[in-house]
Amino acid sequence: MDSDQLKKREERKRDAAYDPVERWKHIQQTITWAEANMPPELRRNRPRTARTRSDQQ
């Protein structure tokens, strides 16, 4: 079996064994973790400096 076939077989086995509730919890945790670990300029909820009226003048 070559390495690609082995990887696909391994993924199929894990998919079958993964508890769906656990998997869903892990997916949600991953999204939160990914957001916190993205390079700063790509984070969605990064702090931004509010523009004041004097900035606009």
């Binding site: 390495s3 082995l6 990887k7 391994e10 894990r14 993964y18 656990e22 892990h26 991953t30």
Partner: peptide
């Protein structure tokens, strides 16, 4: 290669 589950993912 091994594809595993863990309690953390």
């Amino acid at each position: 290669v091994f594809c595993l589950t863990t309690r953390h993912g």
